[in-house]
Every structure is written in C-alpha cells, then in structure tokens.
Simulated scan of single mutants.
Amino acid sequence: MDFRKKLVTLLLALAATAAGAQPSGGSQKLPVGWFVTESAPKRYEASVDGSAPCEGTRSASLRSLTEDANGYGTFMQAFGAQDYRGKRLRFSASVRIKDVEGWAGLWMRVEGPDPKQPLAFDNMQSRALVGTRGCKRYEVVLDVPKEATAILAGIIMSGTGQAWLDGVRFDVVDASVPVTDLLASPPVVASSGPAGLEDAPVTVAKNDQLPLGRVGDVWFNHGRVASDKPYTRRADGVWVSILSEEIYEHGIAVTGTYGQRQLDLKVKAGGPRTVIDGTWGGETVNILISSEKLVMRWGRLTRELARDKSAQVDGSCNRYQEKDGPRVTDQLDVCGAAQTTRPPPAQLVIALLANGFKPALPAQSFPIPGPPARSRQALDTERGSNNGIATQ
C-alpha cells in the first residue's frame, strides 16, 4: 500500500468507527488500528467525541479516570516502517486540551532491531501542552533510518485532564523541514538579551562546550550541566551525574534524585516569569525568576534578590543581588536560556539546585562582618588553629 492510500485508510477508519461508536464510556469502539496504553490499569480512557471537533466531524478523546497525577496514558497506533525508510516523516494533528494538570503532546517513536534503543523520538516535552487550550495543529518530525522496523505515534497525557485529537496526517517531507528528534544533537540556543523572559531564543552554532545557559558558575547545554558534580544526558534523555544519580524530564515535570534527595518539581514558563515548585527531600521548593527579581525558597531557607539593571554583565545575563547598604551580601547571575520563555527544565533545575538556597558572596568581595570577639581565647591562633583562624 503506497503512502497516499495508507493515509486515506487511516483517516477513513477514524471517521467510520467514530460515526458508529456508542456513548458507553470505556467500552466505545476505537478507530481501527488505534489503542490505549497506560502506566497502570484503569487510569485513562479513550473514546470518540463529536461535540466540538477541530477538523471534520469526530475527534478521538483521551481522558484521565483518577486524580492520580503520577500516571500517564497514550492513545496510539503502530505500523511497519518499510514504506518510510530513508525518509523524513511528519506526524501532525489538531489537538485541544482541557484542565490538563501535568502535560500533553503528540509523540512519535522510530524503532529498530532493539526496541529498548529507539532510533528517533519526540514527545513534545520541550513544548508541552498544559492547562486548557483550544484547537491548534501540532507536529513532530523524525528521520526514519534504513534499519527502522516500526513506527509508533499518538497523543500522550501525563497527570489528569482530557485531550482531543483529530485531523491526523502522516506526510513525507524534504530536508527543508527540521526534525524535532529529542535523541539528536539539537542546535545550541542563547538568549537574545538580558531584559527578556519575553524574548524568544536565538539559534547559534552547535558546539559541545558552548554554554546554552548559565546560573551562577554552573553552565549547561543540551548534553551537559557543568556543576561541581557534572550531569550528562544519555541517549534515552535521562540526566546522570558522576555519582550515578538520575534525573528525568517529562514535559514540565522534573523528577529523580539530586544530592541524595528525592526530587519532584514542575517548571512553569512561557510568560514574563518562570516558576518552579514542588518538593525536594520532602521540603517544599518554590523558585521565581522574572525580569525584576529572583526568589529561591526551600524549606526554611530563602534567597530573595532584586535585579541590578545597572550591572555591567554579559549581554545575555541578568544579575540579581541582595545588598546591605553598599555591601553586596548575595549575588547570582542568570544567563542565556535560563532566563528565556522556554528554558530547558532539567538543566535549569539542576543549575539552580547546584547554586543552593543560601546566600553566596560575589567573588573578590569582603566577608560580611561578624560580631566582635569578646574573649582572648577567640583570637588564640596557637592552639586548635587552622591557617591562623581559631577553631572554636
């Protein structure tokens, strides 16, 4: 069957089975070739819906059945890759969502001889759909290598809510259409200016050592976070430290282990501010980055810094400071992709946690004065001392 016939068959199957479906919840007939997979049984339900389609007369719907925000479900299909080997394939559809707490998006995966090692993959995690959104056409684009055996595609939802899918298309496209492959080496992105969470990033040349963004002294790109315990990104998208701690990125959610503490955060961006909230080590985390201030809270620790608009810093950075009179008592620079409307969630979280929630003096600054010494023993540098500093 050639490509056009396959496409027509898929669309006709979707419309025909939708027209004959009965409103009986999970027992509704699904379009031929489509099915539901989920992280645990009875958490998600797929059906057909004719109430408000984006295109045509019917939509397929994926809906959460529980309030558990940790699960995921996908409405998907799988087919042989033989017709698309050596080609660039675009999967597109019209999608709308309602009350999605977590994230949703289209996804496509190209499998080879080993299903555990996908050849190409994208689930829109860098442009996840959250909340309630009206009809819009989205797409994922992947190259299909000659060794490909199967292609899987559909819509995924993590957490709770409902998503609708229609107008499904599979198109072979030429090289002028960029791939969205998360397993490929994407171009490095830098910020267009310091004032901006409102400005879109600018694409620059790819270089493994070229920073994509920076928080304090911790820089990152698409494959590395250069903190004191560096993290690197594996081919499967998992970030792994030199201590073998793993951090996972699921759309706006960042989970895993950092500093031997369990991590469960969400990165909410896309407007004039970026908000990160959740828990780390059982303590509540709340971080706010805006063009005016930076606030970092974890349990009882708080850093609250105002942006210094007069600071002479690199053009892609915002400098945030706290002062006690003329003295700077805390300082942190947020640069590049870390302060754009689309920061990479995992890298941003790792970089912020690596800087910590306690005030940090800027380099080459005088220490904050302490209380006066009230005894001779406090100045004794001959007993129990370390480099001339009393170890009381």
Rank of each mutant, 00 (worst) to 15 (best):
M1W: 07
F3C: 06
F3D: 09
L7S: 11
A16H: 11
A18R: 01
S24A: 12
S24V: 12
S24E: 12
G25N: 10
W34G: 00
F35W: 10
T37Q: 13
A40H: 12
P41N: 10
K42Q: 14
Y44D: 01
S47W: 07
S47C: 11
V48C: 12
V48E: 03
V48L: 10
G50C: 10
P53Q: 03
T66L: 13
E67F: 06
A69P: 06
N70G: 11
N70D: 12
N70W: 03
T74R: 05
M76T: 06
G80S: 11
Y84W: 13
R90I: 03
S92D: 08
A93H: 04
R96Y: 04
D99A: 13
G102L: 02
W103S: 03
G105E: 01
L106W: 01
M108V: 08
R109M: 09
V110Y: 01
V110C: 04
G112W: 04
N123K: 09
K136M: 12
R137M: 08
V140A: 04
K146E: 15
K146I: 12
A148C: 10
L152I: 06
G154D: 02
G159W: 02
G159I: 04
Q162V: 06
F170A: 02
V177Q: 12
P178T: 05
V179D: 05
P186K: 07
S191P: 04
A195W: 12
L197D: 03
V202F: 14
V202M: 15
D208A: 13
P211M: 10
P211V: 07
V215H: 00
G216M: 06
D217F: 07
W219K: 01
F220T: 00
R224M: 05
V225M: 03
V225L: 04
K229W: 09
W239Y: 08
V240H: 01
E246G: 03
E246P: 02
G251H: 01
G251T: 03
A253M: 08
V254S: 02
T255D: 08
Y258T: 05
R261M: 12
K266A: 10
V267R: 00
K268F: 05
T274V: 13
V275I: 14
D277S: 14
T279E: 06
T279A: 07
N286I: 08
N286S: 12
L288Y: 02
E292R: 10
M296R: 07
W298T: 00
W298N: 02
R303M: 05
L305T: 02
V313M: 08
D314W: 09
G315I: 05
S316G: 11
S316W: 04
Y320L: 07
D324W: 07
D324V: 06
V328Y: 05
T341P: 00
P344H: 05
Q347S: 09
Q347C: 04
L353K: 01
F357Y: 08
P359T: 11
A360E: 13
P367C: 07
P367E: 06
R374S: 15
Q377W: 09
L379W: 10
N386D: 10
A390I: 03
